[in-house]
């Protein structure tokens, strides 16, 4: 029978999950974050504000 990490972890140990460090997930979120920031800067500041005839009124 297979056992998962969660199943094997003590239920009431408050510090127990500190041993479970999802560095892969953290790295993935950091990459998503970087992509979103770069895309937003490009779309808003370069592509939108950089074009001619910005509507000002």
């Amino acid at each position: 029978m297979s056992r998962t990490e969660t199943a094997g972890a003590p239920v009431d140990d408050a510090g127990g999950d500190e041993e479970f460090d999802p560095v892969g997930t953290l790295a993935l979120i950091a990459v998503y974050f970087a992509i979103l920031v770069i895309a937003w800067v490009y779309i808003y500041y370069i592509e939108f504000l950089g074009r001619d005839l910005v509507v000002v009124g």
Binding site: V37, W40, Y44, F48, L49, V54, V55, V56, G57
Partner: peptide
């Protein structure tokens, strides 16, 4: 960041609807 840049657009370059 998103809210800040839209605010900047309205206040700085004066983008309007």
């Amino acid at each position: 960041l998103l809210l800040g840049s839209v605010t900047y657009g309205a206040v700085g370059p004066g983008v309007a609807m």
